[in-house]
Design a protein around this nucleic acid. Structure first.
Lengths: 266, 266
DNA sequence: GAGTGGTCTAGACCACGGG
DNA sequence: CCGTGGTCTAGACCACTCC
């Protein structure tokens, strides 16, 4: 660790870049708990001294760990091991009983039961839906949709983004276009419109967030998101709702329950 | 873009770091298709000239885009816009009919129908299961499990990692401990052992891969993974199987289909 | 061989927030 | 105020692969 090293000569004999070795060292400390969640790492300067390399090289190592989601820089205090707490997210809300409190929707009630403090903002817009949504709702080019946009918070922090699209022709003049929580549940309203949802298809895609999403959800580096697209259908197979939810990886576990279909017992 | 700039003075008046501006410029070109998937970006040198900054600064911008999963460096050819193709992954295989070809399991048959070339390796071990798995299977400390590890490939590239754990006490001496595909399906074997699976709970977690996973799956930078944990139960609620699947975000869409439970029509 | 990205050094100035 | 991480410069040598 103290041998003379020529300038700009990276992998040397050891086959591993120096910054990768430093990252490995720190990562193993995190993995086995010698550095616990929330604990502070040595400063860049300290690591630079310890490994006898430039701060630039140390920063390369830390950037790696940052992008692996293991550490979080908190300026100007230092780097800390990331603390992760995930809440359970169940996409099957529309098929479960409505909450007892009229102020709350399904999601809020479940979170409150876990002792968290949920809140949300709702805005409603009439828009040309993005292509994926239009396709799921089988809308023609140019057809409009109503979108109910929710930003949900837990203990004051943004938690997920939830946009529900409905065909404008279906829900116009109904309660769905009002920017408030629908206490009976959107499915009751759909039902009265003769378009009760009885089936859904969920698609989950995993990727890094766009800068916009990262900003809105206050995501640090190294935090991927799940994109959950739920499309709801009537018993005749007509799509009536398309929900896009952006879920930060550090804050959610998505949970499904499945039963064997009745006809496939064999 | 050509004004004199003092050394080491980053955000200036513009509130945005230079490397972030360069990243924004490239990102917007990617977003609106001026740089199409698979297309090559300007070289570091070219960008360095164009924006009149050091190569180091250009690299900071490119590192950002790399970690957002937008570009992939291919040495020594240059940087390219990432091409993404996702296949559909359905976790409900055990409740669907078995494949017609005895050589293939559910997953392989579905992929073959899409015109892809699937293959897989299977190894079987008897292990002390990881804590999460032990907890799902309700195993006591020290109890062993049989794990069937699959690595699945599509068109020769690693596609996902799939580890199925069974309580050793349940499946010992059965076909499940042999390192071959079980043509009838594992659930048929469980059925003969008096432990037919009729229900499952799926949990999906999203995070960046560990270096080991990244290596095994040949993931580039900026590729998150989904961890799908499926736990199977008998009609008496006894857990009989716990499956852990690691799915690279760039290669999968996870899909579920849901019907309204029979008793909640109201 | 030429040109690419990968690694590393040695230095500088800056913004920011906790003590 | 001081120490932290954030940004940037100006250089160097390397490994790799395509031509």
């Amino acid at each position: 660790m103290s041998e003379a090293r020529l300038v700009g000569m990276p992998p040397r004999s050891s086959a591993q870049a120096v910054y990768a070795q430093i990252a490995d060292d720190l990562r193993s400390q995190i993995d086995d708990g010698r550095l616990a969640p929330g604990e502070q790492l040595p400063t860049e300067q300290a690591l630079s001294d310890k490994f006898d390399v430039t701060r630039t090289t140390v920063r390369q190592a830390l950037t790696l760990l940052k992008n692996e989601g293991l550490v979080v820089p908190s300026r100007p205090r230092g780097y800390f091991v990331r603390k992760v707490q995930r809440s359970i997210f169940r996409p099957q809300a529309e098929f479960r009983p409505r909450p007892s409190s009229p102020e709350m929707d399904q999601w809020m009630e479940e979170q409150a039961q876990e002792g968290r403090v949920p809140s949300q903002t709702i805005t409603v817009e009439i828009v040309t839906p993005p292509p994926v949504v239009a396709s799921r709702l089988k809308l023609q080019e140019g057809e409009l949709a109503v979108v109910r946009r929710r930003v949900r918070y837990l203990d004051g922090e943004p938690f997920n983004l939830n946009d529900s699209y409905f065909p404008l022709g279906l829900v116009n003049n109904s309660e769905i276009v009002t920017p408030h929580d629908i206490q009976r549940g959107a499915n009751e309203v759909l039902s009265e419109l003769g378009a009760r949802q009885v089936r859904a298809i969920d698609e989950i895609e995993v990727r890094m967030p766009s800068p916009v999403e990262s900003d809105r959800l206050e995501l640090g580096p190294g935090v991927p998101v799940a994109v959950l697209r739920s499309t709801g259908y009537t018993k005749d197979g007509q799509p009536v709702r398309s929900v896009v939810t952006i879920l930060p990886g550090t804050r959610h576990v998505i949970m499904f329950e499945r039963d064997r279909p009745v006809d496939s017992g064999r």
